[in-house]
Design a protein around this nucleic acid. Structure first.
Length: 676
DNA sequence: AGCACGCCGACT
DNA sequence: GTCGGCGTGCTC
């Protein structure tokens, strides 16, 4: 019997409705933007006419605060704890159980990890409904594909045994350092197909559409058109839902996609992979801002699936997975790496010798770069020119050694706040804790000088075109991204991340403006620069075939050394150690809380933060008035990694307390990638 | 976000 | 007395 909601509703109004005979209570997750304290299910009465359709996981329409809203039926129960009278379930748009127990559990885990709300995660995980797709989407899976040959994996230590584990259903987890020139889509397709051959599901997530096309091509080679499905947020709604349903119903074993696919409801997940986890596109820009790598590691763990975190470069997060022993290394022998890599030359500011050629001088091309390009073009190969994007971000660095200037209290980034006091410009201040730094002294070299760092304009394609007047120049970037270029002499000017693949490999790559790339104010400046360099350099022929890379950056810098030696793991390990020392993620877990000063204050009053919590700030965000107060401010809270979960849950709880509710508008982000 | 209840000032 | 201010709390 229903505890409160009567089975047979009394009163004239609901006389025509009768509750279902068995399990008349539906626990419903309402899909409306709600304050955090309402992050819980609500109970409704199931009328007997909807009894058959109202199955766990189906979409429902219910009346909530007087309005008809969408929701998901989580479960049917006999009784409700709610003391009042339950409203009726109004409609079941479709009995398709889209929020399966597995998917629900995954969404809960993700919400918990980020201190976010379940409904927000479910909104990311389930695409909008399209009725036609429910009729047309397939239900039955085809036979498992044959197990693919995977000799190419033998180039990596433990590569063969990794695939063996995938096939045998033993969870193997690896940080994969792809060899220069590696056909990574083919390798990931092989691994995914290996899981499918064993009858299990596979999921591979890549940063962008171009990568997805390459991966899709590699997968259809092994699985045929019907054996793989690509999920991408930019698909038309009907097609998107059709493909998603095919996955949900278990009709397709291998699923690939861009970040929205991290939640794909793959049946019996046996293998998951994220390619190039350092690409910021893997960070989902909606609450609670989940990251592909985090979600897939969590899913692999929960499902007992194998996992690959792969790239040409390596993030500090991937390094942590390896160093903590959670994953193992999947890398080639050093000698094989050297044999596959191009020859890399670094040219610093001081040893820049401009080319004699007047046009090359005009383009400010050093002679080494000019000669490398000319030799490659002469050999009939295309040359890649990587030009950093435009953009400007104010930040400060040591005026002498160029080390990023950091706060002595909390190691946050120093910047010039702008504005003046009594005609004197305000001194540098920490962007985290707000402490002013009037007497900077560089911890590395002792210098007292500060200089502004700005991401500047790159050289243009026209300038380079003049330096090589008889060679066609093509550009790949924001406007138009090229997928591939033929093995002919050409200059390919590309912004980072938009480099086309060259048939037979580029003869040379020129990585311009390395200094500005390295000097970017983000925490990940060096890691990002190196990732972009490796991605471009990996498209160049091996040194033995004449492949050369010239990077315009000081060879004494660690990221530059890592590129020259082709040792991404070494740099990632240093980076991780440094983050540990500075108290940054992933060594520690950091939360950024934005909101009005009152909301922040009430959160600080009420939050039961973990014992290792260190609170920085708040610092004003955006415009500051005469008294130094802003409409919104940011608070940083950091804790030991082990207390990440506790931090997420305490921030979740603190947002729900009465005092914070009025001021509301608190935005909580965990390990925000763009915070610094 | 909107809507209902609730405890003090100006009015018939 | 009683109308109505919006401050506070709730949404099955």
């Amino acid at each position: 019997m229903a505890g409160a909601g009567p089975r047979r509703p009394k009163g004239a109004k609901s006389a025509e409705r009768t509750a279902a005979a068995s399990r008349p209570v539906a626990r419903v997750l309402v899909d409306v933007p709600l304050p955090v304290h309402l992050d819980r299910p609500f109970d409704y009465q199931v009328p007997d006419r909807l009894d058959a359709d109202a199955v766990p996981g189906c979409r429902v329409r219910v009346r909530f605060r007087g309005k008809l809203v969408d929701g998901y039926l989580l479960e049917r129960t006999e009784t409700s704890e709610f003391p009042g009278t339950l409203s009726w379930l109004e409609r079941v748009p479709s009995p398709e159980p889209v929020l399966t127990p597995d998917l629900l559990e995954m969404c809960r885990a993700v919400a918990t990890r980020y201190g976010g709300m379940l409904a927000d995660v479910v909104r990311l995980a389930i695409p909008p409904r399209h009725a036609g797709a429910e009729k047309s989407a397939p239900r039955e899976p085809g036979p498992p594909p044959p197990r693919p040959a995977a000799q190419a994996w033998a180039r990596y230590q433990h590569g063969t045994s990794f695939l063996e584990a995938v096939h045998a259903g033993r969870p193997a987890r690896a940080v994969w350092q792809a060899l220069p020139g590696e056909d990574w889509p083919a390798r990931l397709a092989e691994a995914a197909t290996t899981a499918a051959a064993a009858g299990r599901g596979a999921l591979v997530v890549v940063p962008d559409h171009r990568d997805l096309q390459r991966l899709h091509h590699a997968c259809t080679e092994l699985l045929g058109e019907a054996g793989v499905v690509a999920l991408a947020a930019e698909l038309a709604p009907a097609e998107r839902y059709h493909r998603w349903l095919a996955v949900l119903r278990g009709a397709v074993r291998v699923v690939i996609g861009t970040r929205a696919a991290m939640f794909a409801p793959v049946r019996d997940l046996g293998f998951a992979a994220v390619w190039d986890d350092g690409d910021e596109l893997h960070s989902y820009p909606q609450v609670p801002y989940p990251h592909t790598r985090d979600v897939l590691t969590q899913r692999a763990h929960a499902a007992g699936a194998s996992l690959i975190v792969g790239a040409f470069a390596r993030t500090a997060e991937a390094a942590l997975l390896a160093e903590s022993g959670w994953a193992h290394e999947l890398a080639a022998h050093r000698s094989d790496v050297r044999a596959a890599a191009p020859r890399v030359t670094a040219i610093g500011e001081d040893d820049t010798q401009l080319a004699r050629d007047p046009a090359a001088r005009a383009a400010r091309l050093p002679s080494v770069a000019f000669e490398a390009a000319r030799a490659a073009l002469g050999a009939g190969a295309p040359v890649l020119v990587q030009v950093p994007r435009r953009g400007y971000v104010p930040a400060l660095a040591c005026g002498d050694c160029r080390e990023r200037a950091r706060c002595r209290r909390c190691a946050g980034p120093l910047a010039l706040p702008g504005g003046s006091e009594g005609g004197v410009p305000k001194p540098a201040a920490c962007r985290w804790c707000g402490a002013a730094e009037a007497a900077f002294r560089c911890p590395s070299c002792g210098s007292r000088r500060l200089r502004a760092v700005a991401v500047g304009a790159g050289r243009t394609a026209e300038e380079l075109g003049r330096a090589f007047s008889n060679v066609p120049v093509r550009t790949s970037g924001a406007g138009e991204v090229l997928a591939s270029v033929p093995a002919k002499p050409a200059l390919i000017v590309s912004t980072p991340g938009a480099e086309p693949v060259a048939e037979g490999g580029y003869g040379a790559a020129l990585l311009l403006d390395g200094r500005t790339l390295l000097g970017r104010p983000e925490l990940r400046a060096a890691e990002t620069a190196l990732r972009l360099w490796f991605a471009a350099a990996a498209l160049v022929r091996p040194a033995r075939d004449g492949g050369r890379v010239v990077v315009m950056a000081d060879s004494s810098l660690q990221p530059v050394q890592a590129l020259v030696r082709w040792d991404p793991a070494w740099f990632a390990s240093l980076e991780l150690a440094e983050r540990d020392q500075l108290g940054f993620p992933p060594a520690r877990r950091v939360a950024a809380v934005d909101g009005t000063p009152e909301a922040i204050e009430s959160l600080l009053d009420s939050a039961d933060l973990p014992t290792t919590a260190e609170v920085l700030g708040p610092v004003p965000l955006g415009e500051v008035d005469a008294d130094g107060n802003a409409e919104r401010e940011r608070l940083i809270v950091r804790v030991d990694r082990a207390e990440g979960r506790a931090l997420a849950s305490s921030l979740h709880a603190a947002q729900a307390v009465r005092a914070a509710r009025k001021a509301a508008e608190l935005q909580v982000r965990l390990d925000p990638p763009d915070m610094l």
